[in-house]
Each structure stands twice: as C-alpha cells, then as structure tokens.
C-alpha cells in the first residue's frame, strides 16, 4: 500500500480542474474551468448562450479535445490524448443531446441495445430485455419497434435517455435536453429526469429551465464567457447572486 499523503484532499467523484478548451486552436471556449460533482449529486450548469456549458459536457465525452486541465472520475485521471484512456472515460459517461441524435436507421429498441451489445459485447437477449425495461421506465413500452421519425420529439428524447441509461454510466450528462421540444412535451422529459434524480443518478445538467434546475440540482454553476463565475446551492445562485454578471443574467431570465 502506498501511504496516502494527508496533504492531498480527497478528490470528488467527478473532478474537473483547470479545464481549458480552444476551438480551432485559437479562441478559448472554456478557460480554466474547475468543478466537482459528488456521487449521486445533480449539478446544474447555467449561463448565456455560448458561455461554454455544452462544451464542458462535449469535452468530458471526448467530442472536443481539452488544451489543458485535469479530469478524473472516481479518483482515476482521464488522459484525453490517449485512445485507451478516452475509451475508459466514455464508459463512465453517457450524454443526451439537445437534438436527441437517435440513430435514424434503427428502431427505438435497437437504438437502446446497440452499444451494450456491440461495444460492451454483452449477451443480446439479456441486453434487449433490459432495453425493453428501460423503454418501459421512460413510458415507451409500446414504441420499441418504432423508428425515430415515427416518434414525437418528447418520445425521441426519452428514447435517448433510455439509450444513455443502457450504458450504465456513472455520470449522466444532459445537454439542454428540453430545448428542442415543444412546450407541451417538456414535462414528460423533465418527469423522467426527476425520477432519475430520486434513484440517485449522478447528473450534470445543462438547461435553460431555471425552475427545473432549482428543483433538482443540489448545486448550480453559472458560466459566462467560458469561465465558471459562481458555484453554489440553487437558492444562493438564484436569490442572492454575488457577481454582477450573474445578477444581470438572473434578472434577464426572471423577467421572461
């Protein structure tokens, strides 16, 4: 056993430190972002468009390459420049996108079952049974054989959530999952996420649904121009913002 250095504090379940991401090698879309998420915790990311909220999630799953910074999950550091380490990281995370991004050439069931069977090489019959159960859990038991274009936006997004859950992720990343939905379909997706929170799923949620963030998140991070400006419990962030930028943001949001 290597003795644990008492000077080093224990890392959070998901620990992001000094994350910097540039786009096209020039502009920093994320600048020195640090954020910690404990197991079972739900953290909300808010901020104006282009503030880098989605970039954090996309970087965590390796769709964008960080220029600097450290990310670790459960104490294990992730090296995004190594293929093997990236694969391991992608096993930890599952992401749900704003535009659902279901595979158009597959049924709902296949969408949910494909990664566990193909990538994780699990038994197909068992995976499909689980996929059916997951689709039932998001209220789509009767839609297993429907193709994405036969489903409404809300239904597609719930399939996408089931697909993410089928990966059995340690951390679920939700990237503005209700932003593309018609207002009357938002509720069904939010209900699904509420249920996940109750089950103790660790989540990082980017959303413009401030009321929802306030309700499900235990902490909220406010981003502006690629930097984390403030982090705190929802009540602090929304009711007693410290920084001028956050005050400006919340006042504009609440006016709507």
């Amino acid at each position: 056993m290597v003795p644990i250095d008492p000077g080093i504090s224990r890392l959070a379940f998901l620990s992001i430190a000094g994350l910097t991401v540039s786009y096209g090698g020039k502009v920093d879309v994320l600048r020195d972002v640090s954020l910690e998420v404990e197991r079972g915790e739900v953290v909300g990311l808010i901020g104006p468009s282009g503030s880098g909220k989605s970039t954090i999630l996309r970087t965590l799953v390796g769709l964008m390459k960080p220029r600097a910074g450290r990310v670790s999950v459960d104490g294990a550091p992730i090296d995004y420049s190594s293929r093997g380490s990236l694969r391991a990281a992608r096993d930890r995370f599952a992401i749900v996108f704003q535009q659902y991004n279901l595979f158009q050439n597959m049924t709902a069931l296949r969408n949910v079952a494909i990664a566990p069977t193909l990538v994780k090489k699990r038994d197909r019959a068992q995976v499909e049974a689980e996929a059916r159960a997951l689709l039932a859990r998001v209220g789509l038991a009767e839609k297993v054989n429907a193709y994405p274009d036969e489903l409404s936006g809300g239904q597609q997004q719930r399939v996408a959530i089931a697909r993410a859950l089928a990966l059995k992720p340690d951390i679920l990343l939700l990237d503005e999952v209700t932003a593309a939905l018609d207002p009357e379909l938002v509720g069904e997706v939010l209900d699904t996420i509420r249920a996940l929170q109750r089950d103790g799923m660790t989540m990082l949620i980017v959303s413009h649904e401030m009321g929802f963030i306030r309700e499900v998140a235990s902490r909220v991070a406010f981003l502006d121009q690629g930097s984390v400006v403030e982090v705190g419990p929802p009540a602090e962030i929304f009711d007693t913002p410290k920084s001028a930028r956050l005050r400006d943001f919340t006042s504009r949001i609440l006016r709507h």
Binding site: R58, V61, G62, L63, R87, R90, D91, F93, A94, I95, F97, Q99, N101, L102, F103, Q104, A115, L118, V119, R163, L167
Partner: peptide
Amino acid sequence: APQWDAAEAMNF
C-alpha cells in the same frame, strides 16, 4: 455530424 457524435460518445 450529430449522428457521429452520438456513436463516438458511446465508444463506437
């Protein structure tokens, strides 16, 4: 491109 994103994020 989002179809690629989804597949790559799932380790395809």
